[in-house]
Design a protein around this nucleic acid. Structure first.
Lengths: 214, 214
DNA sequence: CCCTCCATCAGCCGATCGGCCGATGCCGTT
DNA sequence: AACGGCATCGGCCGATCGGCTGATGGAGGG
């Protein structure tokens, strides 16, 4: 580890095409060595344990073992490998969970080659690398409390949310519940945080997904 | 053309990683020759004219000249090349337009290597290749499920709505779909009318209730 | 050929939202 | 008695939304 001949990599993505692209890209560049590939989170954990890579390039959305869970498990195990998340969209809602789970960096797949190389080297050094879009989203959400399992909504919050799902405006909700509009907004802010969303539309969707509504 | 030494390819995708993956995959396999790459639809048209490939591997969502338009233009020109659409999500609403525009096949990027090779050979022969998921979606799309008491949403509208449900702002939706924010708002206004709601939160709820989302 | 549907885009503007600072009071736990 | 969760309220402000009006072009039906 002192002479550091090459940075060893594990590639995790459910798309063979992407895996090949990354493999080819790094194998043809000096200073990198691709140890193996995995197609989902569970496989990633096996390979990581067996191959002990310096850096793991990981997609987030994968069938059969999501990337975030794998990252969380890796840091729980105290794995040596640094995880660099490679995803398609910066609007991906998994950004924060991934970082919190212990990802060292977060990049978009349309990043140019050199940026990828730089990022991997930085990650190998333990430095955090974020694409600009991701970075800005991060700072604004640092102190946002988050529970993966899902904190329960209070009765009042559910009440407000149900009205939101019917297209009711804050002012109308206030009248309906005999409270002030400020209070409605407070409830909304709280339930946004609990649901891990940032606006009423996403809150409604999250509520349906969790069976709170519908 | 009689002995057919190798199937020549043109790769079209806005992600460098994916282009590299496909190039590496086909260059390392016998029977294929990659003639070139393109990053958007317009570039694809130029390259196709200049290189005259047997098969074009084409992504659909790209900035500056969408894939569907390129396919349509190619078939309008009577191009010799067969177009094989390679996309990320089977939920992609561009499936039908792409097929109608003249695509010879439609595959998902997470298809295994061999399936890709087989598909390209089939496409070169002019045979239609559809991934199972796409095929099933096709048949169900043909039967056009009309929800009682509601006008059906257009493909684009459903696409916008799905992003809304993830908390995406209009501006972000615009970037994601490579259209302007004005167009996003137009789609929203229309789908509000069709769903009988007045804002995005209620639209999401209505969509869940009618099984459009979820 | 006309007409409709769909997708695309533009500007304007008022309404609304969401973030951010704060505050008070109640209640149950520690 | 102190603490934390819940519900209540206020003001401020920038960002965003949604309505409105109107336009273009392509596809498809009549």
């Amino acid at each position: 580890m002192t002479d550091d001949p090459a940075i060893s990599l594990l590639i995790v993505d459910d798309h063979p095409v992407v895996r090949d692209g990354l493999r080819g890209m790094f194998e043809s560049a000096p200073g990198f060595r691709v140890l193996g590939e995995a197609a989902d989170g569970n496989e990633a954990l096996e390979r990581a344990a067996a191959l002990d890579p310096d850096v793991i390039l990981m997609d987030l959305r994968m069938p059969g073992g999501g990337g975030v869970d794998a990252i969380r498990e890796l840091s729980r195990r105290g794995a040596r490998a640094k995880v660099l998340v490679l995803t398609t969209y910066d609007t991906d809602s998994d950004t924060l969970p991934a970082i919190e789970a212990g990802a060292t960096g977060y990049l978009l797949k349309d990043a140019p080659r050199e940026e990828l190389f730089t990022a991997v080297r930085a990650a190998a050094d333990g430095r955090t690398v974020l694409s600009p879009a991701v970075a800005s989203r991060l700072v604004s959400a640092v102190r946002t409390p988050r529970s993966p399992g899902g904190e329960p909504l209070s009765a009042r919050e559910r009440e407000v949310l149900a009205l939101v799902a019917r297209g009711t405006s804050n002012r109308e909700i206030a009248r309906e519940l005999f409270i002030s509009e400020a209070t409605v907004k407070t409830h909304l802010t709280h339930l946004y945080a609990k649901l891990g969303v940032k606006d009423r539309a996403a809150a409604v969707a999250a509520a349906y997904d969790r069976g709170i509504l519908g």
